[in-house]
Simulated scan of single mutants.
Amino acid sequence: MTFPARCLVLSAVIAVRAFAQAPQLVWEASGFSAPESAVFDAGRNQFYVSNMGAYGQGAAPGDGFISRVSADGRILELKWIAGLQDPKGLALANGRLYVGDNADLVEIDPATGAVMARHQPEDGPGSFNDCTADAAGNIYVFSNRLGTIFRLGGGKFEAWFKVDRSQTGGLNGLKAEQDRLLLGGWTVRGPDGKEQPGHLSLVTFGETPRLGRIGRSAIGRIDGIEPDGRGGYTVTDWWTGDLLQVTADGESAVLLSLGRGTADHTYLVGEGLLVIPHVLDHKVRAYRWKP
């Protein structure tokens, strides 16, 4: 084998090992109540974790809450913000914490813990899930009831993009990037009419937002979506419990199998830290990993 050929083989082996490297558990925190989303407040060196509490048919109203968790995984205040209906997605921007609650997009002042505003569609509850912030501080949240992405920006809360669910399928996770909004599909009907796992769709920013797709492969029932710092993503599959790495062209590989209920995680690129809520285990786990 020639020297260039050996170099190519060695590079391929290194690439495969890097892609397949398993995350290592750093800490685990328990005592939550159906934790769904986590976000890191760098200025205060702490995480916020949304807790749905009881959810689904017959759920107790108003038992959802937000927890404060230290950077090393200690629960600082379990019920920091209480009285929420079914809080899920979290986003930090504009000096505020935004929460996708069942009826409203809730706006909280992290300095005081006070609810500053509740944003709702004009015709009733939004049935909101994930939310995300772009670089300009606009907040995006998806209404399952209306099949519409709403945007909060410039003091206005309004419908921004009507989703074609025949293309995207049912949606869960959202993630804003520089020039587009990523949409994590739950399931979608294939050409044969049968239900199949979801994929990553996108909506471009600009005067005329356009719907697109990343790759052609099914990925899973996508909950969390986080950039990996190398042009790809990590996503969680709530249904299988898998944590996956997804390339820029939509190909995926399993990094960890964690059990059903892995939800809207966060990834701190500089620290190489994945923080993953587990809805059904009532725990949050942190893993060290870099692509």
Rank of each mutant, 00 (worst) to 15 (best):
T234D: 06
D192Q: 13
R180W: 03
G229I: 12
S217H: 09
T234P: 00
R189Q: 15
G231H: 04
I225M: 11
H199S: 12
L183S: 11
S201A: 14
A218N: 03
F205D: 03
L171Y: 02
G212N: 09
G215P: 00
Y233Q: 03
R180E: 15
G185K: 06
T208A: 09
F205P: 01
G198C: 03
T187R: 04
G198V: 10
R189N: 15
G198S: 06
P191A: 15
Q178F: 01
P227D: 08
G184W: 09
K194F: 08
G193N: 11
P191C: 06
R221C: 12
D223A: 07
G170I: 00
I222Y: 01
I214Y: 08
L200I: 15
E207Y: 00
L171Q: 01
I225C: 09
E195G: 03
G215I: 04
S217I: 01
D223R: 05
D179P: 00
G193D: 00
G229M: 13
E226H: 01
D179L: 00
V188S: 02
L211F: 05
I225K: 08
L171G: 07
G232D: 05
L202M: 13
D228V: 00
L211G: 08
A218W: 02
E195M: 08
G212Q: 05
L211H: 14
E207L: 04
L202K: 07
G173R: 08
G193T: 05
Q196Y: 04
R216F: 06
G215V: 07
G229D: 13
R221S: 15
G220A: 01
D192M: 02
